[in-house]
Computed example of a mutant assay.
Amino acid sequence: MIEIVTLCANASRGAVALECEWLGGKGGGAPVIVFLAEGTIDPLGDWPARLVRALGLRGLVCGLSGGAPVRDQARDILPALFDARDIDSRMWIVGYREGGTIALLYAAEHPGGLAGAIVIAPRMFSQSPHAGHLLGVRAAFDPANLRERFACHAPHHEWTIEGELHGLRCPVLAIRDFPDDDGSAAAHIDLLKSHAHGADRLETHTHQGTAEFPPLDPMIRFISAHSPLSR
């Protein structure tokens, strides 16, 4: 059942209302997988429930606060939500697109407090309407210098989380979106690989357009291999 969780206002923001839904029940000692959706939780469909069932874990699907900067959501809104729902720090976080960006930022802020993170088509930096064309020639450059190479084409409001990626310590699985006609999805994954050297383990998976999206099998294998319950 979907519930609305209201986070009280603090010194930097007003009250925030988020959509949340528990999968597999609220109680029990099993670890929690937190799924980060953009806006409402509906776009995620039923795959979070299928992933939770396959692993025998609990899940909490969260609709993110639309319009709030990704750093504010990672540093303020998510911790407040986890406190409000008494979620253990050794959770897994799974995020899609902007949710993946926020998952990475949260993981970097709490280097010892996560079991692991899975990010699906994450965004390491913003893209202007012409960024896809520019990123199509990414193979000619060192991925570690992507942001600098394209800086002259970027408007001032663009952002990157490149600096925060060095703080990652937990296992991370990054799933690349498909189709990827302009090369932009791969560029984001390349930047992650170039700066997440501190992660306990970093794996990447390229989705094939004819297969299920998001692909559950690599997620099941990754969580099973790194869950404290499997050791």
Rank of each mutant, 00 (worst) to 15 (best):
G59A: 07
F35R: 05
E109I: 03
P48T: 01
S65N: 14
I41L: 13
E109D: 15
L104Q: 12
G113Q: 10
H130A: 11
W92L: 09
V70I: 00
S89G: 09
R123D: 11
M124A: 15
V70K: 02
V52K: 02
R85C: 12
R138W: 00
A108W: 08
D88V: 07
S65D: 14
I41A: 03
G67A: 11
G39T: 02
G113V: 02
L60H: 06
I41V: 13
R97I: 04
P79L: 11
L64H: 01
V94L: 15
G59M: 06
R75W: 09
A37H: 04
R71D: 09
V70F: 08
D86A: 13
W47A: 11
D86Y: 06
P48V: 00
G56W: 08
R85N: 07
S128M: 10
G136L: 08
F141A: 15
V70T: 10
A107E: 08
I118W: 06
G99D: 06
L104V: 10
A80T: 02
H133C: 04
P31W: 07
S126Y: 02
L134K: 04
P69D: 14
A108I: 11
P79H: 08
L78G: 03
A107P: 07
G45D: 03
L60K: 04
G67L: 14
M91H: 13
G66T: 12
F35S: 07
G63M: 05
V32Q: 05
D86Q: 13
P111K: 04
G67Y: 13
L135G: 04
V94F: 06
A140N: 04
F125M: 15
V34Y: 01
G39Y: 01
A115D: 09
G63W: 10
P111H: 10
C62G: 00
G59S: 04
G56V: 10
P48F: 11
D76R: 05
G59L: 06
P122N: 07
Y96N: 07
P129D: 03
V137R: 15
A107H: 07
P129A: 09
Y96I: 09
R50K: 11
R97Q: 09
L134H: 15
L134F: 07
I120M: 14
L55S: 00
A108R: 14
C62Y: 01
A68F: 08
H110C: 12
S126A: 13
M91C: 14
A117I: 13
G113C: 05
D76F: 06
R138F: 01
G116F: 02
R58H: 10
G99C: 11
D72K: 07
D46C: 06
H110L: 06
H130I: 07
A121M: 04
I33T: 06
R123S: 10
Q127Y: 08
F82E: 00
L78V: 01
M91N: 06
G39A: 03
L81G: 02
A80Y: 00
Q127S: 10
Y96S: 11
S89V: 06
R75P: 01
P31T: 00
V32N: 09
P43T: 05
L57T: 04
L114G: 06
D42F: 01
A140K: 13
I120Y: 09
G112L: 11
A107C: 14
M124T: 12
I93S: 02
Y106G: 01
P79A: 09
I93A: 00
